[in-house]
Design a protein around this nucleic acid. Structure first.
Lengths: 304, 304
DNA sequence: CGCTTCCATACGTCCAATATATGAATTCAC
DNA sequence: GTGAATTCATATATTGGACGTATGGAAGCG
């Protein structure tokens, strides 16, 4: 059976008349008769009662006509559906993000705008650490993720830098250094540090440690916390100081003050990663277009 | 687009591999590639990502694969559905019947057995007068009807006699004639009759009047009632006597007694009618088979 | 770097869908 | 009742397109 049989059958059912149906289909009457006979033979069912003046659906024909019409409609819709998914208007996107990402104003803005523009794209959001996100993208558990610099291999992943923000020093509110407009890193050499464990934030961790080394000291870590929000809270509790992505000052936590770092300023990069193999997935392409549109100018690397 | 495209597409989607899919389909790889390309061109959408090692569905391809599988399943089901309707296993039948029919034991038995055998056939039942039923069948308001003899034209209708039962005299319980084992019609010549109006039961009405005429008198009608059940109740109330189909004694109404009529015994025929044009409608054929199976031997007439 | 794998392209073949011509059954006109 | 008209079925010819065979080309692998 082919869709041709269904199309011809529905035409005859509509017209109740082979000759008229054939004309409507733009073919001759004999081939139409043959196709219908072929369909009836394949089904093992007489679909029409042949009358002196045209034809009428049999009981089985009536049932089959309903099904055939629905199938033909479904075929049309399937094509339309595929086109809409391909255009990025429909479908899904699973987004992962590092804990600190939502504090950069660009990220909520991008998400809000994406959902507004593509309301028919199922949008899911997940927060994890950068290494966990890299693995999730690789394993096809999420399609795209906002991450901090990746330490290990990023084989099979494409990367695009979204923002490269200045890091700030985060101090308990009453801290001696809180009065300074700008803080040279060396001033922190004797301070107790609150940092990520290296396992969850190796990239940023190394960046911070390297900056301290360049300034001439090795940070003394007294407390670790996996999530940047926890770090801020620990600082607020007076446990120590830290160096954090600038956007974290949007967390507005009482008891914590952020101060610029004297040059050279260490940078916290926020990047987007996705599977290279799925680089053309329509929803991903739409998301990247949107970021490019909303983001301040930023350099971009590809295929890390 | 043809179902071939969908079948081929699903095979490739399943295998993730043109060559293997082609083998499974029993065709060569090049024609398969061409058919898929043709489908992609028609949809205006790339359904597969071509990988070094086989192919993978694109986002749109994934969506289309779901739809395609459903459509192919629906096509199979539509065929099966049509076959089941054609076999009489599925579908509907609208049955009409004259008020007196359910009192003949065969009728409830037939209906019960039909519903038991064909539980998936939607069965509707309607009671009307014989002329109304003939019109309803003709107008395709019911598919088949149990009727008493039809007076007027039965153009376009087929008829089959179901039973040809003896008529009985129905008397009020205390009636003088109630003591007799058998009643010659002439004994009723002075009795008041309760009969159908001729308009609703012309066939049976004429049969009764003719029988009386043969016996040598003209019945004196004192009361008319359109439904046979009403006639029985009027007799029970003592308003008169009547001549009724024998099966009406199954109504078991207090105050009415039934007595056989002396030869020649007038007959009340119960027939099935249906549209000649729909004589092969599967549910009708099944019903007639069933009646033939359950009915006592009976003569049959065709194409009245 | 050659071998393998796998999809795409090129081209010839053949079946099946279509066209044309005609037949058969029924209706309609008169 | 006979001839014309209508309409679906059948017969035969034609052709487009699906398929097969051969080959190319890109990528991975040892």
């Amino acid at each position: 059976m082919e869709l041709r049989h269904l199309r011809y059958f529905v035409a005859v059912a509509d017209e109740g008349h082979f000759t008229r149906a054939a004309k409507r289909l733009g073919i001759g009457q004999p081939p139409l008769s043959l196709q219908i006979q072929q369909l009836e033979r394949e089904l093992g069912v007489l679909l029409f009662r042949r009358l002196p003046r045209g034809v009428a659906l049999s009981e089985a024909g009536r049932a089959f006509a309903d099904d055939a019409r629905r199938i033909l409609r479904d075929v049309d819709r399937a094509g339309e559906h595929a086109r809409r998914v391909a255009s990025g208007e429909l479908g899904r996107i699973r987004v992962g993000m590092i804990n600190s990402a939502p504090f950069h104003p660009l990220i909520p803005q991008v998400i809000r705008e994406f959902r507004r523009r593509y309301p028919n794209v199922a949008f899911s959001l997940e927060e994890r650490s950068t290494p966990a996100l890299a693995a999730a993208v690789r394993d096809d558990a999420v399609d795209v993720a906002f991450v901090r610099p990746i330490h290990g291999s990023s084989e099979g992943l494409d990367t695009e830098t979204i923002v490269d923000e200045d890091m700030l020093v985060a101090l308990p509110a009453g801290h001696a250094l809180a009065g300074r407009r700008q803080i040279p890193l060396l001033a922190l050499s004797i301070e107790p540090f609150v940092l990520f464990p290296r396992t969850v934030g190796a990239g940023l961790h190394d960046e911070i440690v390297a900056a301290c080394r360049r300034a001439g000291f090795s940070p003394r870590v007294v407390q670790e916390a996996s999530q940047v929000t926890s770090i801020v809270n620990l600082i607020a509790s007076g446990l120590g100081v830290s160096i954090l992505p600038g956007s974290m000052q949007h967390m507005h936590t009482d008891g914590v003050v952020f101060r610029p770092i004297a040059r050279p300023i260490p940078k916290a990069r926020l990047s987007l990663i996705w599977r290279h193999a799925d680089r053309d997935a329509p929803q991903l392409v739409r998301l990247r277009e949107l970021i490019r549109e909303l983001a301040p100018v930023s350099r971009r690397g590809r295929r890390a």
